[in-house]
Amino acid sequence: MSDDVHSLIGAWAVDAVDDDERRRVEAHLLECESCAAEAVELREAAGRLSDVLLTDPPPELRDRVLAATSRTGQEAAPAPRRRPARRPGTLRVPRRRLALGAAALALAAAFAGVFATWQVMRSTDAPLAESEMAAVLEAPDADVAVQRAEGGGRVTVVFSAELDQAVVVVSDLAEIGDDRSYQVWLVDEAGQTSAGVMDPGDSSATMLVDGLGDTEIVGLTNEPAGGSDQPTEPMIADLALPA
């Protein structure tokens, strides 16, 4: 199985895999250092194949693109916007958008999948040492779970039992109005606990979850803005964390 995924790295680098295979390869890259290093290089080599394709686009394209971009907002550089709702009586759940971690993880969300997350783990020169998020990503026992969310987007959970923490990356979920919020849950035998509520209308977020405890499943639901005390079923993603 693993060898099967592994052998797809070349095909992955030239986008010759289907969506399901792409997800499996990218999850695999998180766990396999040598594969990820190879993947980076093969992707760079693949990109060079476009050197022979350079073709000037029609001049109108420039006008259209510049007109569109001058009125298109940019995705915010990773920076905190609003504090997430904190629920009394739940686990301490600080939510961060750390400069580098969030940028790289957001890139992962964009198109490079989990692959870029691996880059965060590998960046030895990155100023990540103090950040708890980096600590989770770099934990020797760190494990990863990835799942496509119902309706679009994906949820990636990198967790360390030793640190009792997880980094949850939610990306490109189905668009919702400002009257709705996505909410992340920790599910164990005793029930569900909110792990954080995303800003209303947001469909991507990165959060650090403290106090994983005996969590068996990390779940995601669509709730009224600000979140709910109990998850509204069905969950749109439910990632099982191996015990």
């Binding site: 693109v65 907002g73 870029a116």
Partner: peptide, 21 residues
């Protein structure tokens, strides 16, 4: 191409040199 170029503008803040050229 237009979609791609607009996407590059939209998501440029995510680019990190450490992630490749």
């Amino acid at each position: 191409a237009q979609e791609v170029l607009v996407e590059i503008w939209r998501t440029a803040s995510r680019y990190d040199e450490r992630l490749g050229s």
